[in-house]
Design a protein around this nucleic acid. Structure first.
Lengths: 202, 202, 202, 202
DNA sequence: AGGTAACCGAGACGGTACGTCTAGTCTTCTA
DNA sequence: TAGAAGACTAGACGTACCGTCTCGGTTACCT
């Protein structure tokens, strides 16, 4: 989406202004934190960054990928790759970290805004899905390791299990009908794993 | 959001036109099905319904609650209230019906649009949450009945279990990384209930 | 325009509410003084008078005749009918009184608003013209008396002379490029009468 | 009001589109002539000119200055600057030309509309006054030349005399109680000048 | 005393234009 | 020749009034 990658083989012409690029990202972060995702517009970002709108359009297709770039580090939020020795421990650590996002209202708001945008802008749903997949892959890897350790049946539906973890998280995040307390993480994971284990005993 | 409720204490004034009201809802449904949620505008709805824009703004704050009204009253299939005699059966019937929404691309698109709007418009998140709760209540009722029948522990976290069902559904609906096949419903429910049952054996 | 005239041949029905009528006129005056002619709307008058819009429309065709009714006394501003014994004296008294309207900003604003409305609303130009004629008639009568006294030629164009007096007044009132000082009245009248007299000596 | 003046210190940016500018003025003139001043809206002008509304709002604050621009640049006949050798002749030529505007109903309607707007919109009264002054200046110049030729006293109130000419014209134009016949111009001028001349004999 | 008719308020209705906003695109000047 | 500046088309936004039209209710005249 954005061409942040360095132009490897340029033949001439003015180099892209790293200043402008950084100013745009900084402005985007600032504005999201000040106004919330929705109220941020490309127009406002351009004004704040003191950059021409066309410069933004040159590098990002729309607001969502721009904000995703800007927030990538915050959103990836130091994704934990736990290794506690047991599946239950690993998943609990991961899930608790996941739930703790809700302690940061701005990250929460941004996540919700990005999810919303993925619904409304077909062009954005693709990169968003890729990002989601990268996070699911972490959990799937933990589960696969659990299968190898014999903690889970080899026939368990790991995809569904992963989606139950993220699904509950997102559902509560998006609807807001129930809090997401990191303290609940262990219980949720237990409940999930019990289901997977007993199936294998049937 | 909409004032469908009868005006209880009127002292005068022209009565609300049921024709206009119905025409708006019908137009909203039509347009959502033709163009998708995002492309629908109040302007277009007014034109299609042959109603003044101001009449729409008099009764609905914005597009989202209007479409939700329209969707609720005209499009949404009656929510199944299964009674198969067993919890697993009831939940499977319900979940399978839920998953089958994905067989209707337009309904899917509308659901996604409403969820997106709930993220972007704080005023809409409230009625949306209420609607979500009304659906969760159906599942919670099934589970409570299961508890009474002794199929579930009285201490099981029914809220979390409900959110795992809806969470997985919405997560896949919104992200689109995995299909939602009604045939998977039984398996997903089994996996969930196994977890809840074993917990009671601890 | 307004149906202030009593309904002569009524067979029944509720009598017109004098309260409502007066409240409307009072509200109109208040609002014109607070907001200026232009910003006053029928909607606002109805709200201020705590009267239904339809009640206003029942009695007045539009804002202009309503305001004209409301301001009739102020606008007629105690029209002087001077009788100093000489034409020059009479006209000077009249003209000076005319110019003094400009000492009352609200009357000035109202006069300008009414004149504007007469340009924009063809239905209003007629009653406005009649009101203007009633004021011209006063000056014409003074001049006619001057002719009878032999102060003016019987062939003088009294219509044009009258329009020069009112014309200069309105022109300066409307355009605002020059002040209208009551002290200038005598000079303006002298200049005018000299022209009329010398013509008769030619 | 409009930024016809060249942008003196530009550093970049797309140049103003002369096509769009001209199309707007042309459309404004057409519509005023077809519908009359009052019925013309910015919306309609934009549609007729095939130009975005925002482009109009970029350059003109409202309808009145726009129409004044259009009228000035395209419709208004060149103001006569007569030079007959005598003041009476000059003024008669000018006044007759002035009166002849009333032979063109559409120009009349436009003049009345502009005058009305100057009353209602404080922001417009200023440019309107400037335009009026530019016309007064022509008559004042003729009179000043008359003073230099000894046809008028050096102490005559030329401002008032000018306002009597324009005042009578506008008064009849606006109120419509009397026709404005070009044939009366000589008589009106004579009457006026007699007054001014005799004053010098006093 | 009752009926009738015109009045009253409230307020919804279809309309129309407003002026603002944002999206994207396009063109020119400058460094 | 990239980037800043900014004009352009397009079109929805939500608001404000307009003038019309029901309503339910009131009030005075006229049998």
């Amino acid at each position: 989406m954005h061409t942040g990658e360095t132009h490897s083989r340029r033949t001439g012409g003015r180099l892209r202004s790293q200043d402008a690029h950084d100013a745009v990202l900084a402005a985007a972060v600032e504005l999201v934190e000040e106004l919330g995702y929705q109220a941020v517009t490309i127009e406002r970002i351009a004004a704040r960054a003191e950059v021409a709108k066309s410069t933004i359009y040159r590098w990002w297709k729309s607001k969502a990928p721009l904000v995703m770039d800007a927030y990538r580090s915050a959103v990836e939020q130091r994704m934990p790759r736990p290794d506690t020795g047991s599946l239950a421990g690993d998943l609990t650590v991961f899930t608790a970290a996941l739930y703790r996002v809700t302690e940061h209202p701005l990250r929460t708001r941004t996540l919700r805004g990005l999810m919303a945008e993925a619904q409304l802008d077909p062009a954005f749903s693709e990169p968003f899905r890729e990002w989601v997949e990268s996070r699911r892959a972490v959990v799937l890897a933990l589960m696969t390791k659990g299968v190898q350790r014999g903690e889970l049946s080899a026939t368990a539906d790991l995809e569904a299990a992963t989606d139950q973890i993220f699904g509950l998280f997102w559902y509560r995040l998006l609807v807001g009908h129930q809090p997401l307390d990191a303290g609940q993480a262990a219980e949720h994971v237990d409940q999930l794993l019990s289901g997977l284990r007993t199936r294998e005993q049937d």
